[in-house]
Design a protein around this nucleic acid. Sequence first.
DNA 1: AAGAAAATGATTTACGTACCTCAGAATTTT
DNA 2: AAAATTCTGAGGTACGTAAATCATTTTCTT
Lengths: 340, 340
Amino acid sequence: MRPTVHDIAATAGVSLATVDRVLNGRSGVRQKTIDRVEQAVRALGYVRDMTAANLARRRVYPLVFVLPDGPNSFMRNLEHEVRQAMTRSPHERTAIKLMTTRPLDAEAIARTLDGLDPKDVAGVALVAVDTACVVAAVDRLVSLGVPVVTLVSDLPGSRRAHFCGIDNVAAGRTAAGLMGRFARSTPGKVLVVAGSMRLSDHMGRASGFADVMAREFPHLSILGPLEGRDDALAVRRVVGAALAANSDIVGIYSLGAGNRGLVEVISARTGPRLSVVAHEVTDYSRKALAEGHFDAVINQDCGHEVRSAIRVLLARADGLDPVKAQERIRIDIFLRDNLP
Amino acid sequence: MRPTVHDIAATAGVSLATVDRVLNGRSGVRQKTIDRVEQAVRALGYVRDMTAANLARRRVYPLVFVLPDGPNSFMRNLEHEVRQAMTRSPHERTAIKLMTTRPLDAEAIARTLDGLDPKDVAGVALVAVDTACVVAAVDRLVSLGVPVVTLVSDLPGSRRAHFCGIDNVAAGRTAAGLMGRFARSTPGKVLVVAGSMRLSDHMGRASGFADVMAREFPHLSILGPLEGRDDALAVRRVVGAALAANSDIVGIYSLGAGNRGLVEVISARTGPRLSVVAHEVTDYSRKALAEGHFDAVINQDCGHEVRSAIRVLLARADGLDPVKAQERIRIDIFLRDNLP
DNA sequence: AAGAAAATGATTTACGTACCTCAGAATTTT
DNA sequence: AAAATTCTGAGGTACGTAAATCATTTTCTT
């Protein structure tokens, strides 16, 4: 039988109330007694029965998700997954609130975060723009005791508890490994198109990509990164201009959104075939894969990311550490051949 | 507030005991009353609070994992993850028992399954060999009310509740997509090396691979699949012989285990470089990637698979359906550039 | 040493469900 | 109509923890 709080009380020679105080970090216990209790916990190998604990504290955890609005397919997909999680809320003792801000508008994100009352928020997940004001807003929440996780795009300098997203440097390295092998025979330039260098996920991908390209595939040189602002029209414009100005482009790595614009340019283009690696499976990128405009799409599963964010926030709200290995978000690589 | 059994009793106009009888399928309730209760359940949208239920019925679920023994790194890794899960057992109200059988020995697996007493087993996970006698043994357990899941390698014709593993056809297709693009410039043969065609995962990979190769990369023809019995020595022998007999081999797809033998042959070989795609990250395949002998390794995360198997078995033991989207096991693709 | 403050104990209620017993009501059978 | 049988109600205890109250002891202040 697993030991219970009663067993601890008995072996520590204290009352149940004291054990409870120690276990839940309540005040009013002398250090000497705390030690005795903690020693009993270790001796018996006590672990709190979470089912019973959750039952007893019939607390619900109000969580806030902050996402960009706008037409970005990936973000809409992410929003959909958050809404799915909302339907599961009653079972998970969460109350999820969804807030959206203008894409890439750091001040708007900061304002939204600053507007949150720590008293009625148990955790915050946000898609971050890597900017001083967002860092400050996040750190404010953390210092007020509200755990924060970043979703999809990280905020490295901040005090966020966890980043729920893929390893973007590794993703960029993967993209480079694929690109280099796909375009092994033809020397030339590879165009890199990002959304914004203020997004740490885009930064990470770009640097991982550049790193591997330089070291492993010297016959290919990098052009960019250009900033397409995750916007199809802007992407079409900048890519179109780059292709017009550089006849020796053999590949494109699109590490941000706005792939619709990219496909429009590519499919209208004549000339030798380009090797294209992009991110996120959406209707557009799926079609581009199927039609042979894209060679590979690197994808992250929004559903996993949202579920992971919730698990981590709940764990932190309970003062626990999440299981690291379980919270790793993996990369999916799709070719036209293995599209789901 | 979520409705509770009390609310149901009230709106159905029956007592708590009757609600309990209906909810838990106990006898002694008239059909008319059952209907009333079930209607109240639907009307209120009642869902059983599993934390409370689990607390009340302090049941532990004895699970059995059946794996092959032997030196196969992947299987040893899988075993390690099962042992990890055993350490978490107390939190998950499981009692995991690990049993091993000789690799590829279908009769031994069947014997092991037949030896299980349904009374003290709440669920079984096994790495299946696709054979009539294993199917029969699995179906026997299922008919006795013991849920069974297949792990890593499926048993398509059986009554297993779920397959905890990757989509192996998609994996084979992915391998083909990569191989075809890696070896785009040079026509020739691609050697396929499997462990055994009695393993449904190997079957799936081989067929997905062949499918895409034939359709998309007609300049490459398939040689094999050879059977290396997941054994390094056997792999070395068959691959060595094939390479000696065919000077026009440009790539190798190793879809089973025994990669150590493959690396030995490749690294000793002189001549033009081969494109190699293999499965499972192990010490050997990792080294082969780093040294450039392998181009890509397709990996499945044992930890996820084991955790998923446990979740599914527990859900089935409670008569629930697992959350399908959550139980999808993803494929990791590693190049030397993104090795973790 | 008296008083205040801090630490601890003892005890209770609650969470939502499972499961048990026993009595009594409703229904069917004889 | 009586007896037998089948349903149903009422009420309880239990699971392991959280959280509260209030009494008591210990420790610290002055």
